[in-house]
Design a protein around this nucleic acid. Sequence first.
DNA 1: TTTATTTTTTAGATTTGCCTAAATTATATT
DNA 2: AATATAATTTAGGCAAATCTAAAAAATAAA
Lengths: 219, 219
Amino acid sequence: MNFSIAEENYIKAIYHLQQADGNVTTNELAAELKTRAASVTDMLKKLKAKKLLNYEKYQGFRLSAEGRKIALSIVRRHRLWEYFLVEKLQFGWDEVHEVAEELEHISSRKLVDKLDAYLDYPKFDPHGDPIPDSSGRMAAQKMINLIDLPLNEAAEIVSVGSQSTELLELLRHKNIGIGTVLEVKKHFSFDHSIEIKIKGHPALTLSQQLAQALFVKRM
Amino acid sequence: MNFSIAEENYIKAIYHLQQADGNVTTNELAAELKTRAASVTDMLKKLKAKKLLNYEKYQGFRLSAEGRKIALSIVRRHRLWEYFLVEKLQFGWDEVHEVAEELEHISSRKLVDKLDAYLDYPKFDPHGDPIPDSSGRMAAQKMINLIDLPLNEAAEIVSVGSQSTELLELLRHKNIGIGTVLEVKKHFSFDHSIEIKIKGHPALTLSQQLAQALFVKRM
DNA sequence: TTTATTTTTTAGATTTGCCTAAATTATATT
DNA sequence: AATATAATTTAGGCAAATCTAAAAAATAAA
């Protein structure tokens, strides 16, 4: 089955809202999509007719299994394109969203799978969100920026924000790499540097720039 | 100004038809777009109102200067994406058209220019058609496959159909490269091989596979 | 040049996705 | 529990892009 851009935008928005909220309401969705509640009701009927939605009048709604599957394929496309834009086209993290919103609606399975292969099957997009694989599976945990990790919580480094040799040199020097497990001990507001602790090693200070280039998964 | 997908498809189709025909007619365009003449008339009015079209009822039509500019930016996007799909994602030549038809409607200037840079400013798409640059200029001549070059016509090699090391090795061995000027002297129908002549060198035989991997521009 | 044919346009519907305003149902308050 | 408020749905319309059928204009043929 094929879906219109409007339908896909609704499916994706419902998916994101139900991740956070459980059941989704008409007004919530209208706010998310910057449209009116009446328009949402119209689309809900359409999606229900297509069996993508579990929905009864006045009761709130969630995606059906089939709806969720489609949502995941849209999310996959969105995040793969974001990764492409940042890694290959040198977009900044902050600039990719709107363009990816357009690219995500191109549904050619072949395109998406070849893009995935070309990018070497990335597991997280540039914002740290996991990318579903071609059968809809994805890493459970969102990757977060080291700077956002709460104090004294163990986390594992899963990605670095750039491939510059300068960054890699610095990481090698500090003995930090993918897989390193650490905790943040302190935040210094003066320069936004942080102090971290790796088991069996003395505490280390990381600059704001460095901390922002590191992504971790809580354990 | 921003255009709908339907408008862009009309603009592009008119551009291609007027390249071939001079003036374009309603029925021609309807056939090209697989729609009905009445639908075409409706859209012609819209495009005329937007000053993209020189059009008087019952008279046929052509793009205005402004319309042509927009057509070129759509053609640019289409051909850059085709190049991307073949060179980076390993699509076959024949498989890229439909996907590029979708990608071409994403109009972000920044996206297109960064893609162009990433691809290293290609001059021709995988079908040999020239790619307009960011200001709409493009090579005048269509690039053609060496196998399609008429006998005894001088032509210059401008592109090779793949980057495989095997191909490059063979070309180096035969002393053929980008810029080489040659003529085709003979076609052998048995194996579709061809005999070529490079000035100051003895005649050479190229296999069908090799000839098909070489693109030339007539001089 | 008058008629027949073809091309093009107009008129009037349809579908999708959106809107406002009014009605209905659910929830919160007293 | 009755009423006020908030959320949701229905009713009725609008714009874009398409369609069919009919009318108008241009072109070709007799």
